[in-house]
């Protein structure tokens, strides 16, 4: 009996350790729950990227299921993602861009808006424009309130203006089917 225990206890501990470490091989360190899920969109007042006279607030998301896509022309993955977003938009999805500019340093002056607009127009003409409109996050404050870590990132927002999903990285058919499709369809059906 004792001999069996002496053999089995270390074996069990070892197997436990192996399973624990093996799982680690497949875990994504970037994958951590967003703390804003099920929260309403943070409050903001920001201009439209193409027409800075017009401003939006968090209420702009009420009444429609929206994909809020954080992007910028300087972001390479965003450019790869754009054609697929365009396809989603053609399928009837409501996609809003949250645009922020890397070169704008709030501490030292600001790149002209015209310049940013021109860059964006060029990029969208080239790759297709999936956005109903773009919110211009001038000082990246909304991005910070949303817990954005970089671009691209996408939020799924329900009709009540609540955040239901936060995806870090690009959206492609695999990610859409695995992560978005079920929740999106459910929200639209409501």
């Amino acid at each position: 009996m004792k001999k069996v225990a002496v053999f089995l206890i270390p074996l069990a501990l070892f197997l436990g350790l192996i399973i624990f470490l093996y799982q680690g091989l497949f875990s994504d360190p970037r994958d951590h729950q967003s703390s804003l899920l099920e929260h309403s969109m943070p409050e903001f007042v920001l201009p439209d990227l193409m027409n800075v006279e017009q401003t939006y607030t968090q209420d702009v998301f009420v009444g429609k299921v929206t994909l809020l896509n954080v992007w910028g022309v300087w972001c390479i993955t965003c450019a790869i993602e754009l054609p697929y977003l365009k396809q989603l938009q053609e399928e009837g999805k409501h996609i809003v861009g949250l645009y922020y500019d890397q070169d704008i340093d709030p501490d030292f002056g600001i790149k002209t808006v015209e310049r940013v607009q021109q860059e964006v127009t060029e990029k969208l003409n080239q790759l297709g424009n999936p956005y109903a409109f773009n919110i211009f996050d001038v000082k990246r404050d909304l991005s910070l309130d949303l817990g954005v870590t970089g671009a691209p990132e996408t939020y799924l927002i329900d009709q009540q203006g609540k955040i239901r999903l936060h995806h870090i990285g690009d959206i492609n058919p695999r990610v859409w089917n695995k992560k978005f499709a079920a929740i999106y369809d459910e929200l639209v059906a409501q």
Binding site: R30, R140, L144
Partner: peptide, 23 residues
Amino acid sequence: CPKCQNQNIADSDAMIAVDLKRK
């Protein structure tokens, strides 16, 4: 730093780290 995972925001030069420092 939420982007560059094993650095604090003082060490990191990622844009998000700069933004967090400013905040």
